[in-house]
């Protein structure tokens, strides 16, 4: 399997990359770690005439903290996130998610930004990013804008990124007090992708009621989504085991559910409620040390 011939561009700065992306438009394709794009090009599902390799933009490979927010450069690999001591302390949900992605070889080259921009409906990052209320930075020749995670995933492998924009960073708000989070996943045994993946961040108030809860779900529908129906059932209420289970039953409400050889739509719906319940229970446990 060999891709169609293409012209290869290796910009040395973001500015240069933006210029190339604008210049080639539909004929150009950005590549980060290449672990989504290259297999598609080999199968000739994608045949860009220009590949713009962002891999040498080391300015987009970083994890840093400022004013309590964490910011991660788009080219940071899954492995770098998995092994970051800053993230383990300040945002453990991210290393927990990174560990669940693919395998060691994929994690060494695959990147956070590449995965988000690709928006595979069974990828892990979208669920985590939704649960954390993250914001995604898009740069273009005209400047930059931040997109809320909730507005970022538009449809099957489609994001809110406009032509000429490059996803450059993700930023995450600080962990609230009395909060816990987790990412739980059922792996497709062959591909390692999520049959279902659930990210949860949950915070309690003084009265130990649920003050805030965000649930990101991947693998179930054409795109990752916030389980808003579950969140509504829980907000402001005391988190009893029964309430968590009843709310979790609505995990796939209103979602057009995927069906494949491994898991029927009905089974996926069931898995969604089971994994949302388990993730809520674990996040609650972590919020109540």
């Amino acid at each position: 399997m060999i891709p169609e011939p293409f012209e290869y561009h290796s910009p040395q700065s973001l500015e240069e990359a933006l210029r190339l992306v604008t210049e080639f438009g539909e004929e150009g394709k950005m590549m980060a770690g290449g672990h989504s794009l290259l297999p598609m090009m080999k199968l000739r599902l994608a045949s860009p005439r220009h590949v713009i390799d962002l891999g040498r933009l080391s300015e987009l490979r970083y994890i840093r903290e400022s004013d309590g927010w964490i910011e991660i450069g788009a080219l940071t690999t899954h492995f770098q996130i998995e092994s970051s001591s800053l993230l383990r302390e300040k945002c453990p949900l991210l290393p927990e998610t990174a560990r669940e992605i693919g395998d060691a070889q994929v994690r060494n080259l695959g990147t956070l930004g590449g995965s988000l921009a690709h928006a595979d409906p069974a990828a892990d990052w979208p669920a985590a990013i939704l649960a954390l209320d993250a914001e995604i930075r898009a740069n273009s020749a005209g400047g930059e804008r931040w997109i809320a995670a909730q507005d970022f995933f538009v449809g099957l492998m489609t994001t809110a990124l406009a032509p000429g924009e490059i996803l450059t960073a993700v930023r995450l708000p600080p962990l609230p007090r009395r909060a816990g989070d987790t990412y739980l996943k059922l792996r497709q045994p062959a591909s390692g992708f999520a049959v279902v993946g659930v990210g949860v961040r949950l915070a309690l108030n003084e009265a130990a009621h649920i003050e805030r809860v965000a649930i990101g779900v991947t693998g179930i529908g054409p795109k990752a989504y916030r389980a808003a129906a579950v969140e509504r059932e829980l907000l402001g209420k005391p988190p009893t085991a029964r309430r968590l289970a009843e709310a979790a039953a609505r995990a796939a409400d209103g979602v057009q559910t995927n069906s494949d050889l491994f898991a029927s739509a009905e089974y996926r719906k069931h898995l969604a409620s089971v994994y949302v319940r388990r993730a809520l229970e674990l996040a609650l446990e972590r919020a109540n040390p």
Partner: peptide, 24 residues
């Protein structure tokens, strides 16, 4: 296609799928 691992080699001491890295 970055699944089976038969092409695994080390790039800067880290294992990678050489079938999914361009030579360039």
């Amino acid at each position: 296609r970055a699944t089976c691992g038969a092409c695994t080699m080390l790039m800067d001491k880290k294992p990678v799928y050489a079938c999914t890295v361009l030579a360039i």
